[in-house]
Every structure is written in C-alpha cells, then in structure tokens.
C-alpha cells in the first residue's frame, strides 16, 4: 500500500493542458506542410520526383496531405524553399478537397457538420477498426486513453462494440481480407453515424498504393466525414480533430 502511494506521489499529475494552452512539440517534429509558392519551378519538379509518395502537384504547387507521409524529403531537397514542415499539428480537414493544400488549411470548426456537434458534442462513443493498419496509427489513437491526453475528460471514448458507438475510426489501407469486416462493422453502427479516416493509408492507400491487395481511399467505400492525415498522425493531431469537429 505504501509502495502504491509512493509511486502515486512520484508520478504526480500529468494531464496535458491542451486545448486550453497550446503544446509545443519537438523542433524536428514535422506537422502541417507549408508551400512557398515563389519557389522556382525546377526545384518543385525536383521535389516531386524525389517524393516517395508522389504527393506533389507540380503545376499548382500544392501538396496532397492525404498521400504525404511527412517524411520531409521535399523539405530537405528544397532546403525549405519549396516546402517546409511546420510544428503545427492542427491540420485535419473535413473535405477531401482540402487535403490538396498550399499549407493554408480551412478552419476545421467551420467545416464541421453542425448536426454532429449537436448530436455528439457532449458524448461521443467511437469504434476503432484497424483495416490492415501497421499499428502506428492504432497506437497513437490508443494513447489518447492514457493520463497525458485523457480523452474521456471530453466525453469521448473508444468502445468495444459498434452497437454502442456513434461512428467508426478507420486506420490502415483496407486490405481485401478486411473489407467485409469493415463494412459489416459500419453497418452495425446505428444511424446517424460518423466515419473518420486516420492516417495516409486509410485516406489514400499510403505507402501501399498500387498493391492489388488494398483499397486506395476509404471514401471509395464509405462516406468520410473527417480526414486526419499523418503517418501516423500525432496524438495531439487526433485530439485536435476530434475536439474541433465535434465540440
């Protein structure tokens, strides 16, 4: 008992002050990409050629956050002159069109479905479906339950059954072998329901695009309400998206 108390005392109170106060992430963290439109065209072409995810639109000088894995190759090649990754982790979007960006992300709160705020603003129960996710996105969703993020204080929980949930959070590039299970889980959620795509895999197939075993984009199967890009998205990105979209 004494040992338990000693540990409790040593551990202290660790819950983040976010969203009341903003959190500063490590300098090397790569968050929202910022495009510098005045970059010379040859540099843009060079970045696009090197981008492992082919996420750069050369003509319009834009980056597709749904494909991007935030590896930072373009930033390195252009030495930040074409694209630089900011430390801003608040970059989720409600419309697929907003994924293709120059870095100015439309306010998520403005594009949120207002009826969802009314329905789920005070209590939101989500069912997570990993559909061939590599366990990175899953892990960074799971940590929202740990004391630092403490998702439950906002009335949001991950629940064990789709029957108890208001929507699904999908990770992974939706393998052929998980497609039916995913669709059946969606079916089992009572209406009205929310669909959230987390990670570049579920948004675009991510690193696995081109494989016949996967689906390139959850939106080809289900209506997606909220896109959270990343590889994986930082837990704070997930938290920001859930709070802005539903609160």
């Amino acid at each position: 008992m004494l040992n338990t108390l000693k540990n409790r005392f040593e551990q202290g109170y660790r819950t983040s002050t976010y969203p009341k106060k903003t959190v500063e992430l490590a300098p090397r963290y790569r968050g929202r990409p910022q495009v510098h439109k005045n970059a010379p065209s040859d540099l843009v072409v060079k970045c696009a050629a090197a981008c492992p995810q082919d996420a750069i639109d050369i003509d319009r000088k834009l980056i597709n956050m749904g494909r991007c894995v935030f590896c930072g190759t373009c930033e390195r090649i252009s030495e930040g002159r074409f694209i630089s990754f900011t430390r801003d982790f608040e970059y989720s979007v409600a419309e697929k069109d907003h994924l293709l960006t120059d870095g100015e992300i439309p306010s998520l709160a403005d594009h949120a479905r207002q009826h969802f705020k009314k329905l789920f603003g005070r209590s939101l129960q989500l069912r997570q479906v990993s559909a061939a996710g590599c366990n990175a996105c899953e892990a960074d969703l799971n940590v929202l339950a740990t004391p630092f993020f403490d998702l439950a204080r906002f009335g949001i929980n991950f629940v064990a059954s789709p029957r108890h949930s208001d929507g699904i959070v999908v990770t992974g590039p939706i393998s052929r072998n998980m497609k039916t299970a995913l669709l059946q889980t969606y079916e089992a959620v009572p209406d009205p329901k929310v669909v959230i795509a987390v990670g570049s895999c579920s948004i675009s197939g991510g690193p696995f695009r081109g494989s016949p075993e996967i689906t390139e984009g959850l939106d080809s199967l289900l209506p997606v309400d909220l896109y959270i890009p990343g590889c994986p998205s930082h837990p704070l990105t997930n938290l920001h998206a859930l709070l802005k979209f539903f609160k």
Partner: peptide, 21 residues
C-alpha cells in the same frame, strides 16, 4: 486479415518508395 501484399509490392514499386514501405 492484414495482408497488404508487401513482398510483391516491393518488386514493382519505384526504388524511392522502398524505405517508406
């Protein structure tokens, strides 16, 4: 259920993609 066809994808993917895969 998680099968993504990685070993086959590596053979046909552009070399620049390999570290990410």
């Amino acid at each position: 259920y998680q099968h993504r066809g990685i070993e086959d994808l590596i053979l046909k993917a552009a070399p620049k993609r390999l570290p990410i895969i």
